[in-house]
Computed example of a mutant assay.
Amino acid sequence: MKSTTENWGGRATLMVAHCAGMVDLVALPVWVGVLISGYGLDPQQAGGLATLFLLGAVSASLLVAPRFARLPARATAAAGFAIAALAFGAVGMVDGYMTMAVLHVVAGLAAATALSVTHATIGASGNPHRLFAIVGFALGVFGILFMGGVPKIVAAVGAPALFRCFAGIMAFAACVAALGFPEAPAASAVTQRSGAKLPRAVWLAAIGVSCMALVQAMMFAFVERIGADRSFGAGTVAGVLIALGFVNLIPAPLAAFLQKRVNPRTVLVCGPVVQALLALLMTQSQTFVPYAAGAMFFAAVMIFTHTFAFGLLAALDPSGRAVGATPAMLMIGAAVGPILGGTVVKLAGYQSLGFAAVLIAACAVACFMPRRAANAVLSQR
């Protein structure tokens, strides 16, 4: 039987591809930490390498998404992950900063090429909202396994082991994609829709998602530092981060369950508001319980809201171009967020992060407000 988005063989392949392509979302704190502690880089150099990976990913997503209908999905996904595996493997074998920088860019370009094809294929499925929730749940499980195992491997074997683990993840995804990447809808059907101009609501929704991703990255980069600054204790803060991983298993299945029970416009408008309130809870409170509550549920809001946003974009643009650009929407925020957050903290302290989050969330709400976008989703049900 051919692998498609409507059978579990194809869905399992998309789950693996989503986890591999989104590895930065899970591994970024460990990634930067290993570059500093294991390779002796300063924070700016370490952050620069991660940013280069993300910039490569954004560039690839913007290039691939408009051309999805003309690309062989299986070959593109498999080749992208294979090249990323080679690049990460090479990073684990070199020491020169410039060489590592070039390899990070190559890895970002290759991994995001495969991820863009993955997201476009999900967007062209029969129920993009539900399928994106499924792969989102898989990413949550992957995150727990990664954080539970990889840091221990790195501690036992050494810093290069991190990049060998990345290479192994990408190589596994390449093999899985080569064997069972699902077929997209008939090329003619997609191509007929791909030449149309993207509606204004698509651009607004994409900007809204990018704003939420910016707030997510800006705050998440400093969750541990906020706790340390308020003397909550390293072990206590680590416990919060572990709990956060398990909480993140909830929002994707919940979004799938509520797909036909909740007005999507309500979710899209309320998501940034809740995100901003949790940011204020973390940054303004001087006691542990409010800080912990805000930190544990902060990422879950993004996961839940983005699942509805993905369904919205798939409904507004059935060609797959908009959802194919999902990595760009998310990784622009991931690349800018830590730098912006660090600047805000340097100028005005950790409490100012919450107010910055409120301003950015207001922009996201303004983008999600138009009723036409929500009506497009409702019409697809």
Rank of each mutant, 00 (worst) to 15 (best):
Ile226Asp: 02
Ile226Cys: 02
Ile226Phe: 00
Gly227Arg: 00
Gly227Glu: 02
Gly227Ile: 09
Ala228Cys: 00
Ala228Ser: 07
Ala228Asp: 09
Ala228Pro: 00
Ala228Gly: 01
Arg230Leu: 03
Arg230Tyr: 06
Ser231Thr: 12
Ser231Met: 09
Ser231Ile: 08
Phe232Pro: 09
Gly233Met: 12
Ala234Pro: 01
Ala234Ser: 13
Gly235Leu: 11
Gly235Gln: 14
Thr236Phe: 04
Val237Gly: 08
Val237Trp: 01
Val237Ser: 05
Ala238Thr: 13
Ala238Glu: 12
Ala238Cys: 09
Ala238Lys: 14
Ala238Val: 10
Gly239Phe: 12
Gly239Asp: 13
Gly239Trp: 06
Val240Met: 14
Ile242Pro: 00
Ile242Cys: 01
Ala243Met: 09
Leu244Cys: 05
Gly245Val: 06
Phe246Pro: 02
Val247Gln: 00
Val247Leu: 04
Val247Ser: 01
Asn248Tyr: 04
Asn248Lys: 10
Leu249Gln: 04
Leu249Glu: 06
Leu249Ala: 10
Leu249Gly: 03
Ile250Pro: 02
Pro251Ile: 01
Pro251Phe: 07
Ala252Gln: 06
Ala252Trp: 00
Ala252Met: 07
Pro253Asn: 11
Pro253Val: 09
Ala255Leu: 08
Ala256Lys: 03
Phe257His: 08
Leu258Tyr: 10
Gln259Met: 12
Gln259Glu: 15
Gln259Lys: 14
Gln259Tyr: 11
Val262Asn: 09
Val262Tyr: 00
Val262Lys: 09
Asn263Glu: 15
Pro264Ser: 12
Pro264His: 12
Arg265Val: 11
Arg265Asn: 11
Thr266His: 12
Leu268Arg: 06
Cys270Asn: 09
Cys270Met: 11
Gly271Asn: 02
Gly271Val: 06
Pro272Glu: 09
Val273Asn: 07
Val273Pro: 05
Val274Ala: 07
Ala276His: 03
Ala276Arg: 08
Ala276Leu: 01
Leu277Glu: 08
Leu277Thr: 11
Leu277Gly: 07
Leu277Ala: 14
Leu278Asp: 02
Leu278Ile: 01
Leu278Pro: 05
Ala279Tyr: 03
Ala279Phe: 04
Ala279Trp: 06
Ala279Thr: 03
Leu280Met: 06
Leu280Val: 00
Leu281Ile: 00
Leu281Phe: 00
Met282Cys: 07
